[in-house]
């Protein structure tokens, strides 16, 4: 059961991601990304990380992507509006394979050889565990990210206030 769910969600996540970069219609791209994000949420659920599952759905698949789609629709983006990147196909393929390889190596290094979560970890993915980790061990990073978000917000306000 777990394995089947894992493969289904993984397939959906990868397929969604591939479609996101290959679709020409911007709305299709965005919706493929939604599918990918929902599938990742499903992966969280199979890891019994219910909180992350809900937050992934709520924040990324729900709020963020709705805003992205909102912008696409408001600007009425069509295929012809998409700027074509000046890369030939073989080069683009090479670049994506290279970045995938780098990511895999990084994941291997930082995961310290662990390929799966310990199955018996108590409270894994629960709110308490997550909150403890966020507000004790990773407090600095957490606050830095918060400040970054605040800066982004202020920047957005400044940009919006500017008269064109």
């Amino acid at each position: 059961m777990q394995t089947i769910a894992f493969w289904v969600f993984s397939f959906l996540a990868v397929a969604g991601a591939v479609l996101t970069v290959t679709r020409k219609n911007p709305l299709s791209s965005a919706l493929s990304l939604v599918v990918s994000l929902v599938a990742v949420a499903g992966l969280f659920a199979t890891l019994s990380a219910h909180f992350l599952f809900a937050i992934q759905l709520l924040v990324y698949a729900g709020a963020v992507m709705v805003l992205v789609i909102y912008v696409i629709m408001i600007l009425n983006l069509r295929e012809r509006d998409m700027r074509v990147l000046g890369l030939s196909r073989p080069r683009a393929a090479l670049a994506s394979v290279a970045s995938l390889a780098v990511l895999l190596v990084l994941a291997r290094v930082f995961a310290g050889g662990r390929t799966a979560f310990p199955a018996d970890a108590k409270g894994l993915g629960s709110i308490e565990e997550l909150a403890t980790a966020l507000f004790t061990r990773y407090l600095l990073q957490f606050e830095v990210v918060s400040v970054l978000l605040l800066a982004a917000m202020v920047g957005a306000v400044v940009l919006a206030m500017r008269k064109f």
Binding site: L31, V34, H50, F51, F53, A54, I55, L57, L58, A61, G62, A63, V66, I69, S126, I127
Partner: peptide, 17 residues
């Protein structure tokens, strides 16, 4: 689901789609 409320909120945001 032990995060029931968040799930409800997530679903309501999906309704927009």
């Amino acid at each position: 689901l032990n995060v029931g409320i968040l799930f409800v909120l997530a679903i309501t945001s999906f309704h927009v789609y």
